[in-house]
């Protein structure tokens, strides 16, 4: 346990140092996210007309959907790109040579990134709410659990792509495509879409943030489905990653060959 904390501290400090040292990048990332949302909103208004006026539910849902997408995308990217980058830079092997094991290192790294992402995305949300006049219920007790479970699927996809990227270098060019297909998952109709990543979580989050429901007021069946679907995606992605990692070991690809 003590070892886990020491490793967690190490990865957290590394990430904080990088965020601070490259503060400009951190902030410009945030600004980009903000601008993308404003464009999205303008587009939605142009298409949807008055239904997307301030305070209307569709606009609020748009904000919630955007939040879910940002969280998912960041998680997905940090895994898929993060692992690929470390392989290319030559540091990945060092992460494997740890007594605690690579899976733990990666898990703790993602956790530290998530903590920082909560802060950053929280700031983004605040700006969006302030400048657009959209009001959302930010009941953290209800919001956080839904977000945390929902992005597990994104981690699953991240693991899958990272694994593929280790063995098949060319897959890396497909990373971006999947990133945007996440939007498709969000937009799918509830009937079958709930079995896709992000979809059900997005709906539940909207129910909390737009309609003001509390955690325990959501249907138990939804909760069960949410946990089951997302844990399954994570598990599948992780198993796939371990498979490709074994392949990479066999082929000697963890370095840069």
């Amino acid at each position: 346990m003590k070892e886990v904390l020491t490793v967690f501290r190490a990865v957290l400090v590394r990430q904080l140092t990088l965020y601070r040292r490259y503060l400009f990048n951190t902030l410009s990332g945030l600004v980009t996210m903000y601008i993308v949302f404003m464009l999205l909103m303008t587009g939605a208004r142009a298409i949807g007309g008055t239904t997307f006026m301030n305070g209307d539910a569709p606009l609020q849902s748009l904000v919630v959907g955007y939040l879910v997408w940002v969280f998912a995308m960041v998680g997905y990217q940090e895994l898929a790109w993060g692992i690929t980058n470390e392989a290319q830079m030559g540091t990945l092997e060092k992460l494997y040579l740890t007594p605690i094991g690579f899976s733990w290192v990666q898990g703790l790294l993602q956790l530290s990134l998530l903590i920082m992402q909560l802060g950053l995305t929280g700031t983004l949300l605040m700006f969006i709410m302030l400048t657009t006049g959209v009001r959302l219920q930010v009941d953290l007790v209800s919001v956080l659990p839904i977000i945390l479970v929902t992005i597990l699927a994104a981690y699953g996809l991240g693991f899958l792509m990272a694994g593929l990227g280790l063995v098949y270098k060319r897959v890396q060019s497909a990373f971006q495509i999947l990133q945007f297909s996440l939007i498709g998952f969000l937009a799918a109709p509830a009937s079958w879409g709930r079995f896709l990543p992000l979809n059900l979580g997005n709906r539940m989050l909207a129910s909390v943030m737009v309609d003001g429901n509390r955690l325990w007021q959501l249907p138990a069946a939804d909760w069960a489905a949410l946990v089951f679907v997302n844990v399954t995606y994570l598990a599948l992605g992780f198993v796939a990653f371990r498979f490709f990692e074994g392949k990479a070991r066999e082929l000697g690809l963890l370095g840069h060959y």
Binding site: V7, R9, V11, V13, L18, K94
Partner: peptide, 20 residues
């Protein structure tokens, strides 16, 4: 094998921490 955006000292702290 290093993180080029970190300093020597930060690299040392990171890798020793990683080792527990």
């Amino acid at each position: 094998n290093l993180y080029w955006r970190l300093s020597p000292r930060e690299n040392l702290d990171f890798f020793t921490g990683l080792h527990g």
